[in-house]
Design a binder for these strands. Structure first.
Length: 489
RNA sequence: GCGCCGUUAGCUCAACAGGCAGAGCAGCUGACUCUUAAUCAGCAGGUUGAAGGUUCGAUUCCUUCACGGCGUACCA
């Protein structure tokens, strides 16, 4: 402990010098009665909207660069819309020109002036008045290389955002993608709802939950692993089209594809089925691409590979894929699966179930090849307890998973609405005793189903992963503003 | 959890084969009224992530630890 305190002090020394310098300046301002932390500033327009023909404008933002020229100075002012050059001149500012010394890189400043072109053709504001809006006490990350340190980028995302325009663009795009999906669903008559994030029984997916505790109720609660079971209760209640866009929480490993809290879209449409959900997924994603990248020809580059989004996206059954890619007649024969897995060099401990083997084979031998958006249809019932059976195919359910660029981004079912079958399947899950399955049957959900739930299609899309693909990032951390990191000690 | 890689000034990076820790930006002082990675002159800034070891001498080699990244496992 004393060590870490000492270290902090030492490491910060050089920064302290700069801080002390700025504090001195700040004290000087206060002595002169200057407000270093200003107030409302009514700008006439964002920086990007300034044109040469604009009359006198009021703009504000952060000072990002400073070029002193004795009796004049150039600076760069940046707001969320863009950046513009400022020109401070003694001839124009008179006595006020001495106040230019109050300004530092990093300060927020409001500026009134008239736009003009410099000799080199650069659109510039000839500053007539300027107001300090907020004093910066710490040095900004380096202007040319930006901020590269990955840890600082994630821990102090504000520095990443202010230093790296690309980061701002990623999160602006993320926002537009999600807003666009909302808009589309609203137009299709879906109702956006919010269901509990704290569940007495975690369900709707296979994952280990986070546990928490409610004191007054003396109740164990779980952060939801999926909103599914609550959304389907709403179908029972007569809401025919519902969706929720929000966080789910899974207490699993962290990787470039997994953050413990992640954002999922789940939607349910009464009287639909999984094939309808495939059409909807295709529509939602294509519209997002058309809106964001109208000139892309629906071909996007992801991590150096081109993804062709031209519809219709292939719809292949799991059985077809197993047959074509792995020469497997099905998933009934464990020894055959085992043989393929061994031949594929997969690491096994021998205790794998048929479905473990199937999962491994799929994940390593088939999934990486699913670059073009592909719906994989018709999964084993045993690993899909919430999906409706496929007529005439015992052991198979109406389910698809959507893969894009080798990543799993979507999952959909024809929703199981038979309360008796559902209860049986829940009981089977509980019997496995696995930590990623419920410990008890969700009787409340069974009761809801037994009042009658309309047949329905349900779709889940991992929005973080969808954003990853559309903005071409390798890690989920690059599309989550504050990804989970170990706390600094 | 395991494996590999990384951690040097506020930021971005150097430092041969173990031999005085350096540059650019940012900062400070000064010069400069069309610059734009402004320029010019000067100054300051470091227990090289931490602890230990080897050595006459460690940023460099070894061990342990911390944090991060990637991979892998677990897992949708």
């Amino acid at each position: 402990m004393p060590g870490s305190g000492r270290r902090l002090k030492r490491v910060k020394m050089a920064e302290e010098d700069i801080l002390a310098e700025r504090r001195k300046k700040l004290a000087g301002l206060l002595e002169r009665g200057v407000e270093a932390y200003g107030r409302r500033y009514d700008r006439t327009n964002p920086i990007a909207a300034v044109t040469e023909s604009s009359e006198r404008v009021l703009i504000c933002g952060r000072l990002m660069a400073w070029r002193d020229h004795g009796k004049a100075a150039f600076a760069d002012l940046e707001d969320f819309s863009g950046r513009i050059q400022l020109y401070f001149q003694r001839d124009r500012l008179g006595d006020d020109f001495s106040r230019v010394k109050d300004l530092d890189i990093g300060d927020f400043v409001g500026v009134a002036g008239r736009p003009f072109r410099t000799r080199t053709g650069m659109l510039t504001i000839g500053v007539e008045e300027f107001t300090l809006l907020s004093k910066s006490l710490r040095p900004l990350p380096e202007k040319w290389h930006g901020l590269k340190d990955v840890e600082i980028r994630y821990r102090q995302r504000y520095l990443d955002l202010l230093a790296n325009p690309d980061t701002r663009k990623v999160f602006a795009t993320r926002s537009r993608i999600i807003a666009g999906i909302r808009r589309q669903l609203d137009q299709l008559g879906f109702l956006e709802v919010e269901t509990p994030m704290m569940h007495p029984i975690p369900g709707g997916a296979e994952a280990r939950p986070f546990v928490t505790h409610h004191n007054a109720l003396e109740l164990e609660l779980y952060l939801r692993i999926a909103p599914e079971l609550y959304l389907k209760r709403l179908l029972v209640g007569g809401l025919e089209r519902v969706y929720e866009i929000n966080r789910s929480f899974r207490n699993e490993g962290i990787s470039t594809l997994h953050n413990p809290e992640f954002t999922m879209l789940e939607l349910y449409a009464a009287y639909g089925d999984y094939r309808l959900m495939a059409e909807l997924a295709e529509l939602l994603i294509l519209n997002a691409i058309d809106e964001l990248f109208p000139d892309s020809g629906r071909r996007l580059s992801y991590q150096g590979r081109e993804i062709d989004f031209t519809p219709p996206w292939p719809r292949l059954t799991l059985a077809e894929l197993l047959r074509e890619r792995l020469d497997l007649p099905g998933w009934d024969d464990r020894s055959l699966l085992l043989e393929r897995a061994r031949a594929g060099g997969l690491e096994l401990d021998g205790s794998e179930t048929v479905f473990d083997l199937l999962d491994l084979l799929f994940k390593f031998r088939i999934q990486p090849g699913l670059v073009r958006p592909t719906f994989v249809l018709d999964y084993p019932a045993e690993i899909s307890p919430l999906a409706k059976s496929k007529p005439g195919q015992p052991g198979v359910v109406e389910r698809f998973e959507l893969f894009i660029g080798g990543l799993e981004v979507g999952n959909a079912y024809s929703e199981l609405n038979d309360p008796i079958d559902q209860e049986r399947r829940f009981q089977a899950e509980v019997r496995t005793g696995r930590p990623d399955r419920p410990k008890v049957v969700d009787e409340d959900y069974i009761e809801a189903l037994s009042y009658g739930m309309p047949p329905a299609g349900g779709l889940g899309i991992g929005l973080d992963r969808l954003v990853m693909i559309l903005v071409d990032t390798a890690s989920i951390r690059d599309v989550i503003l504050f990804p989970i990191l170990r706390p600094v000690r």
